[in-house]
Write a protein that binds this DNA or RNA. Structure first.
Length: 263
DNA sequence: AAATGGGTCAACCGCGCGGCT
DNA sequence: AAGCCGCGCGGTTGACCCATT
């Protein structure tokens, strides 16, 4: 599951580590300690660069490092810490004995990301819904949601049928439309979903408009990650869209319960 | 049985920071 | 103050695994 070993143009070995290399590095570090990663490969008799040695040691050979078998407590802690600190993997890993930043990062992407996004979206929408206090607004939202949902679960090309925009509308036009209301976020906020939600929500004019852009989202995703100046909103929109479809009727029912007059 | 596509994870890469000269 | 160097961090890549078609 790793790159095949090879030598680069400078004769430095790259790719998967062999058992012999692991043994050499481990033996050297245990004997002489960690003093200079740049020099260690030379003295350990390895054709690796210092950086590669360091990574191998930190993520795999270190005696106290744990692999896999995350328990529920660790998962919850990662979720909590990520919510608080964003993608500060080294910081998060520091709170989890035996876990490395690389492993935490991988585990997050592989297992926890979906869970977190789902949680965030529910919170965001609950917050949004609770802002609408009048019955009429509530019932209006409900109507919109019902209309959208019914169409969205129609088997044949639901998105095209539901969108108020013609199929000829270009991706770039839609993309521009979707970000017109977006505030500019600091780059640091791009990886923190709390910040994203906080910064975006006040700028969403109405839930109806929000839904309108949201439902055009399938046309936006082709360049959603390329908007360098504003990664947060693109990410938010795409994940929200995915979440809607993933959660299906359960999510819809949850939304309906949140609307005024439905409690 | 073969093809395909998504998931997983070890390893790589580029960048920024801090210490030293 | 400026430049160099080593280290650490976070994002990305690529190969394997496995379920599905």
């Amino acid at each position: 599951m790793v790159r095949a070993p090879y030598f680069d143009k400078n004769g430095v070995k790259k790719g998967a580590w062999s058992r012999e290399e692991d043994d050499k590095l481990r033996e050297h570090v245990e004997k002489y300690g960690l003093w200079n990663w740049r020099e260690i490969p030379k003295f350990a008799g390895l054709s690796r660069c210092g950086k590669s040695c360091r990574l191998r040691w930190m993520n795999y050979l270190r005696p106290d490092v744990k692999h896999g078998n995350y328990n529920e407590e660790e998962e919850d802690l990662i979720l909590k810490l990520h919510e608080k600190h964003g993608n500060k993997w080294s910081l998060i890993a520091a709170k989890l004995p035996g876990r490395t930043d690389n492993e935490v990062k991988n585990y997050w992407h592989a297992h926890l990301k979906k869970r977190s996004v789902k949680k965030q979206n529910t919170l965001v929408l609950k917050e949004k819904c609770s802002g609408h206090t009048s019955e009429s607004e509530g019932s209006q939202m409900k109507k919109e949601m019902e209309a959208r949902t019914v169409v969205s679960y129609t088997p044949s090309n639901p998105i095209l049928e539901s969108t108020p925009l013609s199929p000829e509308t270009s991706c770039s036009e839609l993309s521009n439309m979707s970000t017109d209301f977006a505030p500019k976020l600091p780059v640091s906020a791009g990886s923190n979903w709390n910040n994203i939600a906080e910064n975006i929500l006040p700028s969403v004019p109405t839930f109806g408009e929000f839904i309108g852009d949201f439902w055009t989202e399938p046309f936006l995703t082709d360049n959603a990650y390329t908007q360098d100046d504003f990664p947060g909103v693109s990410f938010y929109q795409e994940e929200l869209f995915v979440s809607y479809y993933d959660d299906g009727m359960d999510f819809y029912n949850e939304m309906m319960k949140e609307l005024p007059g439905n409690n």
